[in-house]
Amino acid sequence: MPSSNFVDYVKIFGRSGNGGSGSSHFRREKFVEFGGPDGGDGGKGGSIILRGNSQFWTLIHLKYQRHIFAENGEAGGGARSTGKNGKDVIIDVPLGTVARDVETGKIVGEVTENGQELVLLPGGRGGLGNWHFKSATNQAPRYSQPGEECREGWFILELKILADVGLVGFPNAGKSTLLAAVSAAKPKIANYAFTTLEPNLGIVEYRDHRSFVMADIPGIIEGAHEGKGLGTRFLRHIERNSILLFMIPADTKDIREEYRILLNELQQYNPELMDKQRLLAITKTDLLDEELQEALSAELPEGVPSLFISSATGYHLPQLKDMLWDALQKENR
């Protein structure tokens, strides 16, 4: 596969900062014969934090920076002075990023909103200075608390594209052509399978200056949930789309069977995808007359709203936008 600027999977190692140790210090000034304990607290170690950034769309900036370390907190000083906190490391990530602990396999969290912060590894707490331990029976404690140790670990960051409408279909079903026709996106288009090797996003302008986001997901083939073709690499992007628009060309031998195969692949990958709204667009219908459309209508799967379209001529594209917008409004109720 050729190199690409789109990276949706990285493995990183992180280490937060140690907390600074507390100080065992005593007040020493002229004319103060018995100065008490005045050791300050240690500073907090720096944390490693993921932050959502809507201007990012890929994890490529982490591809070659896989070891990330935060600063240690500084030790406390006399006169109850607190040590300097270690600087946090903030990693900007695209919306839809999921962080998973490599060792346990558990999801640490996911970033879905601009500015949202997820603490991947918290910094160690600073230790308490000796003035905290002064008591009626121990007027001069000569001990303080050490800082808390850092935390470290390997994490997998996965990007799941966030979009209102996800285009689902076999390779060469016309997904990229539709995206180019209804938005300003410029995906690669050619008359062969697997033209699209990475998801493409486009903003579709609707009436009264309203808009929604459409995602062109690379084509699925039968057995994709088992790793065939492009495998599960891009199936996860479908999980974050509010509505799924299935696209099947008009010259397909059996439209109903192709729809069943696509639906089965999604169900095998993640059964929860069956809860999403599904719409169907029969593409490449510019060469069909009304009689052929009526004949094909009898072959369409039942229970899913459908529409015949042509991205090349613009046939029924306004009606498709209406259908998608109505479905989105229903989803947001």
Rank of each mutant, 00 (worst) to 15 (best):
P2S: 10
S3N: 10
V7G: 02
D8A: 04
F13A: 08
G17F: 03
K30R: 13
E33G: 12
G35L: 15
I48R: 09
I49F: 03
R51H: 07
G52L: 06
Q55G: 10
L59I: 04
E71R: 06
N72D: 15
G76R: 02
S81T: 12
N85I: 07
N85T: 10
G86S: 04
I91T: 02
G96Y: 05
T97H: 04
R100G: 06
D101Y: 08
V102N: 05
T104P: 07
G105A: 02
K106Q: 14
T112P: 00
Q116R: 14
Q116D: 09
E117Q: 13
V119L: 00
L121V: 09
F133P: 07
K134V: 11
S135W: 08
S135C: 03
Q139E: 14
R142D: 11
Q145C: 06
E149D: 14
C150P: 05
E152R: 15
E152N: 15
K160F: 11
G166W: 02
V168H: 05
G169T: 01
F170V: 12
F170M: 15
P171K: 12
A173C: 06
L178Y: 10
A184L: 11
K186T: 14
N191L: 06
L197R: 15
P199Q: 11
G202P: 03
E205K: 15
R207F: 10
D216H: 08
D216F: 08
I221T: 10
E222H: 00
A224I: 04
E226G: 07
E226D: 09
G227W: 10
G227V: 13
G229M: 01
G231E: 05
L235Q: 09
I238D: 05
R240F: 00
I243S: 01
M247D: 01
I248L: 01
P249S: 08
A250M: 03
T252I: 07
K253P: 05
I255L: 07
R256A: 13
E257M: 12
R260C: 05
I261S: 05
L263V: 00
N264S: 15
Y269C: 08
D275F: 09
Q277N: 15
R278N: 12
L280S: 12
K284Q: 14
T285S: 11
T285M: 01
D286R: 06
L288C: 02
E290D: 10
L296W: 02
A298V: 07
P301I: 01
V304K: 01
P305L: 04
S306A: 14
I309P: 05
S310I: 02
S311Y: 08
Q319S: 14
L320T: 00
A327H: 05
Q329R: 09
E331H: 15
